[in-house]
């Protein structure tokens, strides 16, 4: 079931980031989290922002989400400049951030509090989503009763609830064990095909980026900027042991390695 971008009816948004800079003041010193970053994401695309910590990839995601504002440049989603968070952009953080005092069902329901579909419509949508992420049996569970992977599934269901056209993932699988992680990577691909959204994922895992993305933006720190863009033309579903896969992973790793060495030399 190879999915070419052209073959799916795209509902996802385009994202255009032009000349975005963001400076933080840390202990009296200025840190360039992002400097003059420009990148474009096409409707329905799955892209990764890949890089070591401190390269500004999470800041970039927060700016696209509308949780942070750039000091210079602008972020345009579907033709409109992002100024504040919107339900058309779903966000999944590394920690699941489910509300501990609500059940899984209530957590997802909360994301629908503005949906104009009536109480029955909301309940139906919640059941559909929990079914989609395989949590139907845990609708009544509290977050602390779930495993890490299950919590993250619930967080993904919550982010998808208002039918966003852009899904922003901030290292969503970063805190999971490797087995759960690779299973959820498969799940993410399935959800992406099912919901036909644009996905921007932040990760520091090269294999994850290559396994999931249409394109990988490799970023580097101090100041945060895009170092290189890799097209991943390997058809889905990908196999992590294929020669193409391994070769691409290696060339990205090489870039990151050179980056790290250069960073050490300048420090």
């Amino acid at each position: 079931m190879a999915v070419a971008l052209e073959s799916i009816s795209v509902t996802g948004t385009s994202v255009e980031i032009s000349g975005v800079s963001r400076v933080f003041r840390v202990d009296g010193r200025e840190v360039n989290a992002l400097r003059d970053v420009s990148l474009t994401v096409r409707p329905g695309e799955f892209v990764s922002l890949l890089g070591p910590s401190g390269c500004g990839k999470s800041t970039m995601l927060r700016i696209i989400a509308g949780l942070d504002r750039p000091d210079a440049g602008e972020c345009v989603v579907d033709g409109a400049i992002v100024r504040a968070p919107s339900l058309s952009r779903g966000v999944v953080f590394q920690d699941h951030r489910l509300l501990p005092w609500l059940t899984v069902r209530e957590n997802v329901l909360l994301a629908l509090h503005k949906a104009p579909i009536g109480q029955d419509g909301r309940e139906a949508r919640v059941l559909e989503l929990l079914d989609l992420v395989g949590l139907s049996a845990f609708a009544g569970a509290k977050p602390h009763q779930l495993s890490g992977g299950m919590s993250q599934r619930a967080a993904i269901a919550r982010a998808l609830a208002p039918r966003p056209r852009l899904l922003l993932l901030d290292e969503p699988l970063g805190a999971l064990d490797s087995l759960t992680r690779s299973r959820l990577q498969g799940e993410l691909l399935r959800l992406w095909e099912h919901e036909k959204v644009t996905v921007i994922m932040v990760t520091h895992d090269v294999e994850e980026a290559v396994y999931l993305s249409n394109r990988v933006f490799v970023m580097e720190p101090r100041p945060g900027r895009v170092r290189g863009i890799f097209d991943v033309s390997i058809p889905y579903p990908r196999r992590r042991v294929d020669a193409d896969f391994v070769a691409l992973r290696q060339s990205i790793l090489d870039i990151l390695e050179r980056e790290a060495t250069a960073a050490e030399l300048t420090c």
């Binding site: 989400a65 509308g66 339900l87 953080f93 951030r97 509300l99 005092w101 909360l110």
Partner: peptide
């Protein structure tokens, strides 16, 4: 992180106050 979550879930002033901050 609660306040950010409220924001991305489209919670307004009252929802943020009573459904997130208070509990």
């Amino acid at each position: 992180s609660y306040i950010d979550t409220a924001a991305v879930l489209g919670a307004g002033y009252w929802t943020t106050a009573f459904q997130f901050r208070l509990p």
